[in-house]
Simulated scan of single mutants.
Amino acid sequence: MAIPSPEAFCRMWAGGRLTFSKPLRVGVPAKRVSTIEQIQEKEGRSGSLLFVTVKHSIYQHQELILTEEQDIVYREPTPYKAAPGKPAPEAEWLEQFEIDPVMLFRYSAVTFNGHRIHYDWRYVTETEGYPSLVVHGPLTATLVLRAFTKAKPDAVVRSFAFKGVQPIISDQTVEVGGLVESSGVAQVWAATGNGISQTGKVTFE
C-alpha cells in the first residue's frame, strides 16, 4: 500500500527519547545532524496513522553530546473525542500548572514551532476538530523533567523518554509528578482531570 502524503494529515507529537552523553557547553559551537530513522503506517481507532521517527545528534568538537529521537504521528482530520485516562499513581513529588494561550504562544516562538494547533484558535477548532488550543507534547515533557530536577537537584540526568497518551487541551490544570521506582530510575507523568496524558522515565546518577 502506498504511504499517503503527510500534507493530508494532522500532525501530533507522539513521544521522544533523549540521551545525555556529555554536558552541552554554552558558548561552544555545536552541530546537529538530523536523519529520518523510520516511517511506518498504521491503522488506529481514528483512521490511518503515519508514524515518523526523526533522530537528532548534537556534536561539539566532534564529540557526541546529546541524542534526541522524536516520534511524530500524522493522522486523518477527525473530530476529537476525549476519553477518560488512567488515574495518576501516588507521587513522590507533584507540581501544578495552569497552561494558558500566552504560554503556548511563547513556547511556540522559542522553539520555532509554527504548528497552528498551539496558537490559532480558529484553525484548531474548525480544521483539526479540537475544542481549544492544544498543549505541545515537548512543553509537557519540559515541565515534567523540570519538576524532576527540582525534586532531585543533585541528580545527573542520563536519559529521558516520554510518550503521549492523550492530548492536553489548554485552560486546564496540569499536574506533573513522579516517583523513584528503583536506584537511578524514576517514573514521571503529566495528568489532568481526565487522567494521565503523558508518561515517561528518567534515568539518573
Rank of each mutant, 00 (worst) to 15 (best):
27 G>E: 10
36 I>H: 00
37 E>V: 12
40 Q>W: 07
40 Q>F: 07
45 R>W: 05
48 S>T: 09
50 L>Q: 08
56 H>R: 03
59 Y>W: 06
61 H>G: 13
61 H>Q: 15
61 H>I: 04
62 Q>M: 08
64 L>F: 11
65 I>C: 13
65 I>H: 02
65 I>F: 01
68 E>L: 09
69 E>A: 08
69 E>D: 11
70 Q>M: 05
70 Q>I: 00
70 Q>F: 00
75 R>V: 14
77 P>D: 09
78 T>Y: 00
83 A>F: 05
83 A>N: 02
85 G>K: 05
86 K>Q: 15
90 E>C: 10
92 E>V: 12
93 W>R: 03
94 L>S: 12
101 P>F: 04
104 L>K: 04
105 F>M: 13
108 S>T: 03
109 A>T: 09
114 G>C: 06
115 H>T: 08
115 H>W: 01
116 R>A: 12
118 H>T: 11
120 D>F: 03
120 D>W: 03
122 R>Q: 12
125 T>V: 13
128 E>R: 09
135 V>G: 03
135 V>A: 05
139 L>V: 05
140 T>R: 02
141 A>W: 09
142 T>K: 05
146 R>E: 11
147 A>R: 01
148 F>C: 07
151 A>F: 08
152 K>S: 07
152 K>M: 13
157 V>A: 01
158 R>K: 15
159 S>H: 03
162 F>T: 07
163 K>T: 12
165 V>I: 12
165 V>T: 10
166 Q>W: 03
169 I>N: 11
169 I>Y: 06
169 I>E: 11
